[in-house]
């Protein structure tokens, strides 16, 4: 069974790119454009991994992570932060990795593989 990855990012181009990247590499990708949608999708699909943008309209990524970690069913889902903001590596302390946009696709895939395997 394919591992499910939820991509949370308000940038349509990044979402499309990540979805293609994950789908092409044997994963099943889902998308959300903001924190609210992200929580809704996470509850619905129970992803194996989440990629999370930091700066988004309305609530920001760290707010999503806080809600995620307060939900007993979702709190153990690993999160990879992908952001263009400086200092983003400090935004979600318990993220499994924090990548800067533009990121290296091989590096991301390696982290995803290591995390999911």
């Amino acid at each position: 069974m394919k591992k499910k990855i939820l991509v949370i990012d308000d940038d349509l181009n990044i979402r499309d790119y990540l979805v293609s990247l994950f789908n092409d590499n044997g994963y099943e990708a889902y998308i959300a454009g903001d924190v609210k949608e992200g929580i809704k999708e996470a509850k619905k699909i129970k992803p194996d991994l989440i990629t999370l943008d930091i700066e988004m309209p309305g609530e920001w990524g760290p707010r999503f992570y806080r809600q995620l970690s307060q939900d007993s069913e979702l709190k153990n889902i690993p999160v990879i932060v992908i952001s263009g903001l400086s200092g983003h590596q400090y935004a979600v302390v318990n993220a499994v990795a924090s990548l800067t946009k533009p990121f290296d696709r091989e590096e991301l895939l390696k982290i995803v593989k290591e995390t999911l395997n």
């Binding site: 609530e59 990524g61 200092g87 400090y90």
Partner: peptide, 13 residues
């Protein structure tokens, strides 16, 4: 003081 000490999208907690 610390770089971690940043303001990530407002105060809620």
């Amino acid at each position: 003081n610390r770089p971690a000490a940043s303001f990530w999208g407002g105060l809620s907690n």
